[in-house]
Design a protein around this nucleic acid. Structure first.
Lengths: 251, 251
DNA sequence: CGGGCTCTTGATACGTGTCAATGTTGGTGG
DNA sequence: CCACCAACATTGACACGTATCAAGAGCCCG
């Protein structure tokens, strides 16, 4: 459960950041790049299944995912868990903790992850010195909000089948950066337990729902993973539109 | 359905803004105050039931609620509606549209509302000239995210009774600025239809659930409104904690 | 006075949860 | 190398929560 504590301050040069080469992301100006490189404190490797951020704690750090999949969640006292969203390369973790006192959710690694670690205290100086980056952070927060809106619509008003279809189409879309980086197939590294806890359904009913999607040849369930066969079909079933974003910002 | 189009550029002086006198909100520096006053374009009055922002539109404006209650929502093609969150004095509307291309949700007034109107295009100059205000905007976005997280947990994992209790305790807490401004009682101006569309329940079942809360003397249902009798009791039933925030920022 | 809109209630149908049991896979230790 | 165990996936039977249908009452406003 503990996460690998080794941080590697060696490769602090953001110039060779693998994310920067990807078309999905926007480019930095030289000044921004220099600032971010100094903002960065090191890298963190986390094992699959390890907890990166704990609800209630006041983390001193802010992270950007460099590689791997993870998810944010909250739990009630009796153990009921709700997964809120997933994180992939380019996503930021811990902004809430940096802006407010403490984290209101936890984050767990789904696969081995590499994270870029930033000093939370220096966030304000980013705002003072680089309006462009500050705006980007607001953009990122705003996009997260818009994703949560859609999830809420899904959990509140879509049927189980629609919900599952939406989630898998959504995750397929989100997985794009991860696919580009690792050249992997169209497989999403979740168990049915994760799907259930995201959709607000029981495991048993989630299983039956996923089998219906499989029967329609929209997905195929693998050993702890879901292969997406027909993303458009899923999106159509869920009455949901892909929103492709090019040149999105990241820090 | 149309909203009152008259904007009143006369009272552009933010110095007399009623929100600034309230203890809940933080104070501006003179420089910030001056900037915001120039950022402001006018005021907007909206009737109860009118639509302020429409999903899919690219609004040229950004708003701060000066008075009244409203709510954000999304709808599916067949009319199923999910209410995402509520807005009260001090809350910002339309940040998503200002940062991304277009709004992903609609906003409707629950009561007559007064809104402070800002020029969306000038948002970036706010980031360039006032890091403090920019940071505040990020704070606001981050807080919205944290509220949505809790809603998602609620709709996904709480029972109908817990959900209703959470929502009403939450709305009681949120209503604080409105109560202070208007010196009104502890009544929340929603119909059971709104409650149903927030909780992801049917109207009939919402009604039965609310009657259970009333039978426990936690609430009393009035003519299109809910009087909160025991906020702590509601919060306890929902296994939720009030998070009182003093000196919160607003623009 | 009529027509909406909201709130309420009972009867019934259906979706989803819970319980229980089994199969499968991969990892671990003897 | 095999036996065992833990985690995950699967399936059927049944229970329960919630949706749907239907009907009526109260209220406000034109």
């Amino acid at each position: 459960m503990a996460l690998d504590p080794r941080t590697n301050p060696a490769r602090t040069d953001c110039e060779q950041c693998p994310l920067r080469e990807m078309k999905s992301f926007r480019e930095f100006t030289p000044g921004e790049l220099q600032f971010v490189a100094r903002f960065k404190r090191g890298e963190l490797n986390a094992d699959a299944g390890s907890t990166i951020v704990v609800e209630g704690s006041a983390s001193a750090h802010l992270y950007t995912v460099l590689n791997g999949w993870g998810f944010r969640y909250k739990i009630l006292e009796d153990g009921r868990r709700q997964i809120l969203n997933y994180v992939v390369p380019g996503d930021m973790i811990g902004l809430q903790g940096a802006v407010m006192k403490e984290m209101q959710h936890s984050v767990e690694a789904l696969t081995p992850m590499t994270l870029c670690v930033f000093e939370r205290e220096r966030l304000y100086s980013l705002f003072e010195n680089h309006a462009g980056l500050a705006f980007d952070i607001t953009w990122i927060a705003s996009r997260e909000e818009s994703i949560l809106d859609e999830h809420l619509l899904s959990v509140g008003r879509r049927t189980a089948l629609e919900r599952a279809a939406y989630l898998l189409a959504f995750l397929y879309e989100r997985g794009r950066p991860h696919r580009q980086l690792n050249n992997t197939g169209r497989t999403i590294p979740v168990t049915q337990i994760h799907v259930a806890d995201t959709l607000g359904l029981s495991i048993v009913h989630t299983n039956k729902t996923l089998r219906k999607l499989a029967a329609r040849n929209l997905i195929r369930w693998l050993d702890r993973g879901c292969e997406i066969l027909d993303p458009e079909g899923l999106a159509e079933l869920a009455n949901w539109q892909f929103a492709e974003i090019e040149n999105r910002p990241f820090i």
